[in-house]
Design a binder for these strands. Structure first.
Length: 476
RNA sequence: GGCCCCAUCGUCUAGAGGCCUAGGACACCAGGUUCUCAUCCUGGUAACUCCGGUUCGAAUCCGGAUGGGGUCACCA
């Protein structure tokens, strides 16, 4: 069997990390079996349509290092891949369902449906359509249609049967058909609902496996019923567990933090680290490895090994992974990735010398500014921090000695800096720790920095000396 | 609330009846390396939700309870 998977984003807003995570699984499954991964745009909701959303979605997918074989821009044998361009298809199939008695026209106003629902909720019964229009005679339907009355087409759910499907992750799942509502298939504006469009397109595009979010489980019986009505073979389903908020409560949501796929990249998470994180969240390869490249993942991926339980989006683990990927990057590549995160006043010519000093201290790319600003911005130093437990006189003296020694230093290299400073420390009654910290604060304004000599080396002689002088004036 | 899904350390998991005194990773704590921070190394705390059953034997199978999650639109 040819494996064909798909992801079908809806251009109604930001692309969510959960979307990329399931897209990755669809992509990997297709690649693993030498099949195709299809991208389809589900723009069937005219009201929630967001301008420019399609372009954004396509660019995020690429920014994550993923791609599609058939879909927008690329086209393919089943084009078009945009649902708004396939309207006649859905209308034709909906009509055929009506003709065969598997669906019916409904003329109920939105107002009536709303009242119906509020009554049902008040009476604590399950809100559902009451099938009023199912009982219309063909003549009545014809008359209303002829009169131009607005209508939708609803699925006529056959009661009294068990609707079941096999989920790759959970096994067989059963529903009682009475529990399934007479879903609207074709809206009054002539657009299909998701349920009709997804079934028609997945069938026509010969999709073999549907890996989608767990939130779709409860509407799957509608889809199964549609496949049955059309006499088509349903795809193989795997419903992927949802991401829970980092605090462990509820489906990951905007209210509790960042959910947009793009924003993680903007914060300086590497796409390969993000993908790796999505891979191991709720899944492990047989050997329990946690660091995996895309290719390795494609090799190992098996949807049946996905854990059936919802998973907490653990930001700490993501940070750890991101740190690993940053440290693995060769300096020149890190420099490239860092470009969008460098502040305007960052001295580009010093990049290559500064980076090795901070690379292992970076957990996200956006931290670069904080970690390096003392290299190229004025610093502020508090006298109190310089003095610490010493007396002002002793600190002053030691700084003066240091300035004198460094001024005479002919060769401004790490080695000679280290030799000189260690010598000063041995000559004075200073602990190494205290002396180095004094210099660190004087020269950088911070208590946590890269190693002292390397830092001084990169800062340059004049700057180091002027900062030491500044520290001295600070002690007046 | 109805329906559906799920249930091993704080988190992600390994575990397919005896290899489990329950393993790994992140986080956390302690120690080592070290001029600080970080990296790196070593060690530690920490879990089978509960109650019944099946079995010589259960984290593993079955039932129930409890808890968590999803879903109930002319949204996807």
């Amino acid at each position: 069997m040819t494996v064909r998977t798909r992801m079908a984003p809806s251009p109604t807003g930001e692309y969510h990390v959960g979307h990329i995570a399931t897209l990755l699984k669809n992509y990997a499954l297709a690649k693993k079996h030498g099949g195709s991964f299809i991208l389809r745009i589900e723009d069937t909701d005219q009201e929630r349509q967001v301008e420019g959303a399609v372009e954004k979605i396509l660019s995020v997918i690429k920014a994550y290092g993923l791609d599609w074989d058939e879909g927008p821009i690329k086209g393919g044998p089943f084009a078009p891949y945009v649902q708004s361009e396939r309207l006649d298809l859905y209308q034709k199939y909906a009509q055929s369902l009506v003709t065969q008695g598997a669906a019916y026209h409904c003329f109920c106003s939105k107002q009536r449906l709303e009242e119906l629902r509020t009554n049902q909720v008040a009476q604590k019964t399950r809100p559902r359509y009451d099938r009023q229009c199912l009982h219309l005679t063909p003549a009545e339907v014809g008359a209303k249609l002829a009169a131009g009355q607005s209508s939708v087409i609803r699925l006529k759910v056959p009661w009294g049967q068990v609707v079941s499907f096999n989920d790759l992750i959970r096994g067989q799942i059963n529903f009682q058909s009475e529990d399934v509502d007479d879903q609207v298939l074709l809206k009054s504006d002539g657009y299909p609902t998701y349920h009709l469009a997804v079934v028609v397109d997945d069938h026509l595009m010969e999709i073999s496996h549907v890996l989608r979010g767990e939130e779709w489980i409860s509407s799957t019986p509608k889809h199964i019923l549609l496949y049955q009505a059309f006499g088509w073979q349903p795809p193989i389903y795997a419903h992927i567990p949802v991401f829970l908020n980092p605090d462990g409560k509820g489906k990951m949501s905007k209210r509790k933090g960042t959910v947009s796929a793009q924003s993680f990249l903007d914060q300086g998470y590497l796409p390969e680290a993000m993908l790796n994180f999505f891979m191991i969240l709720g899944w492990t390869p047989a050997d329990q490895r946690e660091i995996l490249s895309l290719d390795e993942y494609i090799q190992e991926f098996d949807p049946a090994r996905i854990s059936p339980k919802s998973v907490v989006f653990d930001l700490k683990k993501l940070a750890w992974l991101n740190g690993i990927y940053i440290r693995r990057l060769p300096i020149t590549q890190l420099a490239q990735r860092l470009q969008p995160f460098l502040p305007a006043d960052f001295p580009k010519d010093k990049l290559e010398s500064i980076l090795p000093l901070v690379a292992e201290r970076l957990t996200t790319l956006s931290e670069i500014e904080n970690l390096t600003e003392f290299f190229y911005r004025e610093i502020t130093v508090q006298a109190q921090d310089l003095i610490g437990k010493q007396s002002t006189q002793i600190v002053k003296l030691q700084l003066q000695t240091t300035v004198a020694a460094l001024e005479n230093l002919a060769d401004w290299s790490v080695v000679s800096l280290e030799t000189a400073i260690r010598q000063l420390q041995e000559q004075a009654d200073w602990k190494k720790r205290d002396y180095f910290m004094l210099l660190r604060i004087a020269v950088t304004g911070k208590t946590a920095t890269p190693p002292l000599f390397e830092t001084m080396m990169v800062l340059n002689k004049p700057l180091v000396l002027s900062r030491l002088q500044l520290a001295l004036t600070c002690l007046q």
